[in-house]
Structures are given as C-alpha cells and as structure tokens.
Simulated assay, not measured.
Amino acid sequence: MPFLQTVILFMINRINGQRTASSVFHLLKGKKSSQTIQDAKLYQLDQWFQTVPFLQRSMFDQLIEELTGRRLIEPSGDQFVRVTSEGKELADQFTETVQSFTFLNGWKLQDCANAFWKRLSLTVQVASHLIYQDASYLPVTKDESVQRWLKAFLSNSRLSRENLAEQLHEELFLLLKEAPPENPLLLVLRLTGKKRTGKTIEQAGELTGLESTEYWFRFLHLLHWLIEQVMVRKADCPLLFAMVSDIYEPVTLTQSTKKTKDMLEKGWTIEDIMSNRRLKRSTIEDHIVELALNVPDFSIRPFVSEETENQVLQARAAFPGTRMKTIKEQLPAVSYFQIRLVLAKFNE
C-alpha cells in the first residue's frame, strides 16, 4: 500500500465517521476554508495540512476506491466515511510511524517550507555556478518572487562568491550532522549545482529505497525540522536564517482572520466588523473560531459565558465522539457558534 494511502486511512480513522472523504482531500491539499482549518485542529490532523499540494482529485478518488474495495473503509451515512474493523487495525498499526513524524507540521510550516525550499535550492544552484563564473543555466525555480528575493539577498551579502558557497555549506552541515529526524541525503539529493542535477521525488525515492510518497513525507519532515532548527540557532546560521526569517510565522492565521483579530483587539463588536468589512456573520464567527483554535491566549469569554462553556464541555464528555448536532440537541439554547467556539478552545 502506498504510504500516502496509509496516511489517508489514518486520517479517516481520526475523523471517526464524522466527515466525508473530501474533508481529508481538502486537508492534504491545504484548502484554507474555515471548515477545513477547524477539521485539522479538532481532529488533531493539523500536521498533515497542505502536505500533499500536488494531490489530484482523480488520484485521491482512486486511493479511496481501493480502500473501499479492500474493505478497510465504508460509508457512514450522510456521505460520511469511517474505517472498518480491519481498517482500524491497520490504522492503529500505523500510529507508531505517525508518532515518529515529530517535526512535521503542515499547518504551521508548509507555506514557509514551500518558500524556504525554493530559496534554498536556488541559492545553492546560484552559489555553485558563481564559483565557476558560469551564468548559463536555467534556474531551478521559475517563481519570480524567489528570483527577486535572491537578487536582493546577494546584493545585501558582503560575502565573496567563494565565501558564500563555503558558509552556506558550513551552515547546512552544522545542522544536518546533529541528529536530524531523517537521513540528510533526502534533502541533499534534491539540490542542483554546476556539475549535478537535483533528483526528482521519484528518483530520490528510488535511490533511498523509499516508495515515492513515503520519500515525500520524510523529505518534508526533514525540511520542517530544519526550519525550526534555523529559528532556534539563528546566530549559528545567518544565511539560512535570512532565508526563513520573513516567512516564518509562529502563529498561522488566514489573512482575513488577521484583520478580524486586529479589529477585535481594538474593541469592535461582531456587528461592527460585519458592517465595516461587508461580511456575513457566519464568516466573522468562522474567524473567531479560527482564533480560538490557533491563538493560545485568545479569550472566548466575550462570546461564551463560563456557565455555557461548562454545559458544552459536560455534553461533550457525556457523548464523546459524537457530532456537534448531538450536543446542540442537548443544549437547544446554545448556538452552534458557541458550541464550536468552546470545542475549538479546548481542542475537543
């Protein structure tokens, strides 16, 4: 079974018959809708968020069809999906492997990782060609924003072409020699220089003895770890820090939610924000739920009383693993927004 298919089975096991298979697809693709963001947090699947941006719907549907054919998953009413007893057994076996991906954090790092990898791979390529005074090469990325960034980076650097390559090598070696969670070769194989072409995902997987999707996830795991190491040891790796510092966000929020957060902090009410931004109440409520999910010190008290909060938590405890609709039926006077907010705050 492809590693990606096992990840999908693991995720379906987590959603426990409360979401459709499409919700898993949107999580892996990184759809930044309020529902997908909330699913990622509530079902503790945020580490997988946006980790397979290249996933095509046809490929995903085929993997789901194969899981169904092998009787590892089955429909669960209302187009939801759940694992069978055989599927749960296999998903549980995979749990130990998942726990080894300690540093994989798609929700927090994947946007940063995408940009960092483009910057790093282009810088390595350019530094290599500068040593040979060779300008006749095709950039490894066509992303113009990355090319502009590199031009500014090189113009601000006081290093000679030889020292640039040497220091970049030293910084990477310093970090990658100290107990990385994956084989450093997973990253090194992908880099392009004057006398070598970086390997594709498939080629690198074959060279390292890994199925291509397992290689991809382990490559990401290493890349996410490297980013966190750079942030912790920025004094030891100033070049790498320069590649990360402006794109690393310790708290990840959508841009629209950031605007709502700023307005709430200035004392604006939901109604004020709705009027000013010309957005529906449900949209602003989605933003507030996203804040409760992602900002540790965000207080939900302006929207939910302590009494209501306790009622929701008690109902959740009495009916674990049930859908929000069940809690609403037990607490008709409490709005869905308040239920979502409490569950988000306590990551239920």
Rank of each mutant, 00 (worst) to 15 (best):
M231K: 14
E202P: 09
T200L: 06
A235F: 14
G205C: 05
M231N: 12
Q203D: 09
V188M: 15
I201N: 11
L191Q: 10
E182N: 10
W216N: 03
T213L: 03
R190G: 04
E211K: 03
A235W: 12
E228R: 14
A235K: 15
R218D: 02
L186S: 10
D236Q: 14
E206W: 09
G198S: 04
H224E: 05
E202Q: 09
E228D: 11
T192H: 11
L189P: 07
P184L: 04
Q203G: 06
V232A: 15
T200F: 12
A204C: 05
F217I: 01
V188R: 12
S212T: 08
E202K: 13
G205K: 02
A235M: 12
K195S: 15
K194Y: 15
L222Q: 05
L210A: 07
S212V: 00
T213G: 04
G205F: 01
T192K: 10
E214H: 01
V230K: 07
R218H: 11
L185I: 10
L220F: 08
A235T: 14
H224R: 07
T197P: 09
G193F: 06
S212R: 08
W225N: 04
G193M: 06
H224P: 08
L210V: 01
V230M: 07
Q203I: 00
E214T: 01
V230R: 08
N183H: 14
E228N: 13
V232F: 12
Q203H: 09
R218I: 00
L186C: 11
R196Q: 15
T192S: 13
W216M: 04
V188D: 05
K195N: 14
T213R: 04
L187H: 09
T208S: 07
L187M: 15
R190V: 01
W216I: 00
L222H: 05
G205W: 02
L191V: 11
I227Q: 09
W216L: 02
I201S: 11
L210Y: 09
V188I: 15
Y215L: 02
L226P: 07
K199P: 06
T200D: 05
V188F: 14
W225T: 01
L226N: 06
T197L: 12
V188P: 13
D236H: 14
E228Q: 14
H221R: 03
G198A: 00
H221C: 10
E228W: 10
L207A: 00
T200K: 08
N183V: 00
L185F: 13
L191E: 08
V188E: 08
K195T: 13
T197R: 15
K195Y: 14
I227C: 05
E211P: 04
Y215Q: 02
F217E: 01
K234Q: 15
G198Y: 04
L222W: 05
Q229R: 15
L222D: 02
F217N: 00
S212F: 05
L222T: 04
T197A: 12
K194C: 10
L189E: 07
F217Q: 01
R233C: 06
